[in-house]
Simulated assay, not measured.
Amino acid sequence: MSGLPGIALADWRSAGQDLRFNGHAIRYWTAGQGEPLLLIHGFPTASWDWHYLWQPLAQKYRVIACDMLGFGDSAKPRGHAYSLLQQADLQQALLAHLGIGEPVHVLAHDYGDSVAQELIARHQEGRVQLASCVFLNGGLFPETHHPVLVQKLLLSPIGPLIGRLFSRQKLAQNFAKVFGPQTQPSAQELDDFWNLIAAGNGPAVMHRLIRYMPERRVNRDRWVAAMQATALPLRVIDGAVDPISGAHMVARYRELIAKPDTVLLDGIGHYPQTEAPEQVLAHYLEFRQRLEAE
């Protein structure tokens, strides 16, 4: 269990605010003051993933997060062609909505890593201004991404059926495989994760959201080139025993990125921000303190 108190889901939800994006209702959160820090969640969960880190980070920075389109308490339109590029548009729209013109720090996880990679590419193209980016476990390189069976099935012709059959029990089975052996989610956490996935009949769009996997392959070279070329400070904080994007992904990152700044968390799985939030917080703050000292 975390030594950080976290935020109960009901309290988190009551603190959310609303934004319209391309005609869709988006739920977002902001707290604190200082340099803006954009938190980008993963698949299939939502911004509540950050609840242990939210208050500690808000003591130092202006923290900002939204449930992306198709996730959590945001709209989950049926028949929508969900796209990582559109989710990057959403992050920029949220920053514009909040009147943030200064460079933004990013902390991302899983699917959010791909959105962050697109933002880095746009930063290189002069279309958005970032200040730094830290990645938690995610498929930064398609060649090292090992999807679980349910992800492969969602991509298949029976994807719509697999999504409709997805349940709290299936979520528990999948999370048991990707969390660390000593840091498994509690029954209450699983209830809350499931509540966010199930909201707005989310399972009905999971087979559409999963199209991010082939989209990553299409954008791989542009994204990796941007990460190799950028002067932005980057760090990876990674749960080492994650079968999807653990130590093997970090090994690839070290091959491809010059002067790689990587932290491996022993025994931690795919959700370090809920499995080991104190460690993630310490390594994140250390990264930021080093930037401020330069």
Rank of each mutant, 00 (worst) to 15 (best):
G16A: 15
W29P: 00
P36L: 00
F43C: 02
P44N: 11
W48F: 11
W50R: 00
W54C: 01
Q55K: 03
D67A: 10
F71Q: 05
D73A: 11
H80P: 05
L85G: 06
A88C: 08
L90H: 05
L90R: 06
Q91I: 03
Q92C: 15
L94V: 09
H97S: 14
G99K: 12
P103T: 05
V104A: 01
A108K: 08
D110N: 05
S114G: 13
V115E: 01
Q117H: 12
I120G: 02
G138D: 06
G139K: 01
L140R: 11
F141H: 07
E143H: 04
T144G: 10
T144L: 10
T144W: 08
K152Q: 15
L161S: 14
R164L: 08
L165F: 12
L171W: 11
Q173D: 15
N174K: 08
T183S: 15
Q184C: 11
P185D: 02
P185F: 02
F193P: 03
W194V: 09
A198R: 08
A204L: 11
V205M: 08
E215N: 09
R217T: 13
R220H: 15
R222N: 15
V224E: 10
A226L: 07
A226I: 06
P233W: 04
A240M: 09
D242T: 03
P243T: 09
M249E: 13
R252H: 15
E255L: 06
K259Q: 14
T262E: 08
V263W: 07
T274Q: 08
P277F: 00
P277A: 04
